[in-house]
């Protein structure tokens, strides 16, 4: 069954305390080349049936209305991941 992957990230201009904490840990562990870390969310929606434009439209709607909150986050990617590709 195909899977649709939706990626959501905190807005670039907002402080991401989780990312900041991980960046701090990396620096302590000696990985000093990374100047920043941001943490987002990945949703995998398994589709019962084929993925057509109607399904993708529905996912765009869900991504905007439920999976993300446009005040604090951006949907940065919606893509179909076929089973063979996994």
């Amino acid at each position: 069954m195909p899977t649709i992957v939706v990626d959501v990230m905190p807005k670039a201009e907002l402080l991401d305390p989780q990312g900041k904490a991980v960046a701090g840990a990396l620096a302590r562990l000696g990985s000093s080349r990374f100047s920043g870390v941001r943490i987002g969310k990945r949703f995998e929606l398994t589709v019962d049936g084929a993925v057509d434009d109607a399904v993708l439209d529905e996912v765009r709607g869900i991504a905007a209305s439920l999976l993300s909150n446009s005040v604090i986050e951006d949907v940065v990617g919606i893509r179909v991941q076929e089973e063979a590709a996994r």
């Binding site: 905190p10 907002l14 402080l15 305390p17 989780q18 900041k20 904490a21 909150n69 005040v71 604090i72």
Partner: peptide
């Protein structure tokens, strides 16, 4: 209500 609430600044 407008706006949103995010994780505390100091984590």
């Amino acid at each position: 209500l407008p706006g949103g609430l995010i994780r505390n600044e100091k984590g």
